Simulated assay, not measured.
Amino acid sequence: MSGKDVAVVVLLIVGFASFVTTHVWLAGRLILRGSSRLRGMLALVVPPLAPVWGYRQGFRKGAALWVVALVTYVTARVVAFFA
Rank of each mutant, 00 (worst) to 15 (best):
A69F: 14
V74D: 03
G54W: 13
S18R: 03
M1A: 04
R60N: 01
Q57K: 03
V78D: 07
K4G: 00
G58H: 07
M41G: 15
I31E: 07
V8K: 02
L11R: 11
R60Q: 00
F19S: 05
T22H: 00
R33F: 13
T21A: 15
G40L: 12
A7G: 04
R56P: 11
A64G: 09
T72P: 01
V10T: 05
L65E: 05
S35E: 14
T21I: 12
L49Y: 08
V67H: 09
K4E: 07
W53S: 07
V8H: 02
G28D: 07
A50I: 10
F16W: 11
V6D: 00
W53L: 15
L65K: 03
R33K: 15
P48K: 14
G28V: 06
R29S: 14
G40T: 12
L70P: 04
A7S: 12
F82P: 02
D5T: 02
A80Q: 05
F16Q: 03
T22W: 01
A27D: 03
T22D: 08
M1C: 02
V46L: 12
L65C: 04
D5F: 06
A76I: 02
V10W: 02
V74G: 06
V9Q: 11
V52Q: 04
R56W: 06
D5E: 08
P51Y: 04
L12F: 04
D5P: 03
F19R: 05
Y73Q: 14
T72Q: 13
L70V: 11
V46E: 05
Q57G: 00
S36G: 05
Q57I: 01
A69D: 10
R29E: 15
V6G: 01
R60A: 09
R33I: 10
M1W: 05
A27E: 01
V24S: 10
G28K: 02
L32K: 15
A43W: 06
R56V: 12
A17W: 02
F59V: 00
M1R: 01
T21K: 10
W66P: 00
L42D: 09
A63G: 09
A83R: 02
L30E: 13
T75S: 09
L11P: 08
V79P: 12
V46Y: 07
F19Q: 00
G34N: 12
A27H: 02
R29I: 13
V45R: 01
L44A: 15
I13Q: 00
S35C: 08
V45Q: 05
K61D: 01
L38W: 13
A17Q: 00
Y55M: 09
V71L: 15
R39Y: 13
V52T: 08
V14F: 01
V79W: 10
G34S: 08
W25G: 10
S36P: 03
V71N: 03
F82S: 04
S18G: 06
A27Y: 02
T22Q: 11
K4T: 01
V74R: 01
A50M: 09
F16C: 01
A7P: 04
I13R: 05
F59D: 08
G3L: 14
R77V: 06
Q57N: 07
G58W: 06
T72K: 07
G15M: 08
K61S: 09
L32S: 11
G34M: 11
G58E: 08
F59H: 08
Y73H: 15
M1Y: 04
T75H: 00
P51T: 06
